[in-house]
């Protein structure tokens, strides 16, 4: 039963995360073992999870829906964050394409029903409650920063395109959380699923990621450190009195790319107020070995820009120092040889 005239059976196939779709699957009352015996479902599950060009068969809703839920389970069981993220990316981009064809009322319905987004349309203008906006906004884009939006009595004004983007992000988060739910559940999965999980993992690992375009632009960059970090390292070496946030940025960056606490502490040796014990204590905090046990991420480019630590020499599309590092090391790794020698260069 479809609860509203807005949503058709085709829509359930396009948007399998809708509660109506989950309900439909539940009514089929199939065990996972039974689903695994449906060849068509299994084939499509692998295909849809790994291909950006997969065409959904709108005429066979139950097979499609089952294949989606099977792909979700398989992806979750890979317990491989890279694979799961790629799966979530492929899925959410597909949904985004569908959403872009939809009329306003359907998009609003989906936002509300599937993700509890508080969205309203007043005089044709779309408004989303700031709490949900902040929860799902894409990170590292000045366009989306709350300070650059019109905020009125708790609601942010959005275009229809932006609302679909918000749903895309919400869907991606939904997949990630479902995957961790499944992976952490106590359910005993049938033996025969293992080979499918392995197959999906290896296929997802080879799917080209969206970042490859940006990566290509970074090819040939000698140093994998972003300009801001390079500058901080130079300043630390020169014994300049770095600000608190500068120290935090440098330490958290180095910790995140795999430096040990000892190695990081060495970077601060030349600082005017260097105190080995204190520095170690603070670096351990950042590394998540003390206090809240939280491993701190270095601040985003946005933030670094706002505190004047961004030299502004990056290529376009970089929004986090770690993103730069990852792209640079990946592009170098594909040319052969990065890693330890790079680290030696920086010390």
């Amino acid at each position: 039963m479809i609860s509203t005239h807005i949503i058709t059976i085709e829509d359930l196939v396009k948007y399998p995360f809708l509660p109506e779709a989950t309900e439909r699957i539940r009514r089929l009352n199939l065990s996972l073992r039974e689903v695994l015996s449906l060849r068509d479902v299994v084939e499509r599950a692998i295909k849809r999870a790994t291909s950006r060009n997969y065409t959904i068969d709108l005429t066979d809703p139950d097979t499609e829906l089952l294949s989606f839920y099977l792909s979700l389970v398989l992806a979750a069981l890979t317990r491989d964050n890279v694979a799961i993220r790629r799966f979530a990316d492929i899925e959410s981009k597909r949904v985004s394409k569908f959403l872009q064809q939809e009329p306003l009322d359907k998009v609003v319905y989906i936002a509300k029903k599937a993700f509890n987004i508080d969205v309203k349309v007043v005089n044709g203008l779309i408004q989303v409650h700031f709490v949900h906006y902040l929860k799902y906004m894409p990170q590292g884009d000045l366009e989306w920063k709350l300070v650059n939006r019109v905020l009125h009595r708790g609601f942010v004004y959005l275009s229809l395109r932006e609302l679909t983007r918000l749903i895309e992000e919400a869907y991606e988060k939904w997949i990630l959380s479902k995957c961790s739910e499944i992976a952490n559940s106590m359910i005993v999965f049938p033996e025969e699923i293992t080979s499918l999980v392995d197959e999906l993992r290896s296929k997802l690992r080879t799917v080209s990621s969206e970042v490859s375009v940006r990566r290509r632009r970074l090819e040939g960059v000698v140093d994998p450190y972003p300009p801001c970090i390079r500058k901080l390292i130079e300043e630390a070496k020169a014994g300049e009195n770095l600000s608190h946030i500068a120290r935090f940025t440098l330490a958290s960056f180095l910790i995140h790319i795999g430096f040990s606490v000892d190695e990081v502490v060495k970077y601060f040796e030349n600082l005017p107020d260097y105190d080995e014990k204190k520095t170690r204590y603070q670096v351990e905090h950042i590394a998540g070995l003390r206090g809240s046990r939280k491993k701190y991420l270095p601040p985003s480019c946005d933030y670094l820009r706002s505190v004047g630590l961004c030299p502004g020499e990056c290529i376009k599309g970089i929004h986090h120092p770690l993103q730069y590092y990852r792209l640079a090391t990946r592009s170098r790794a594909s040319e052969g040889g990065v890693g330890s020698e790079q680290r030696a260069e920086a010390t």
Partner: peptide, 12 residues
């Protein structure tokens, strides 16, 4: 984000 909004950090 709320702190940046209040302090106008990142305002363009």
């Amino acid at each position: 984000e709320i702190a940046d909004y209040m302090r106008l950090i990142g305002l363009r």
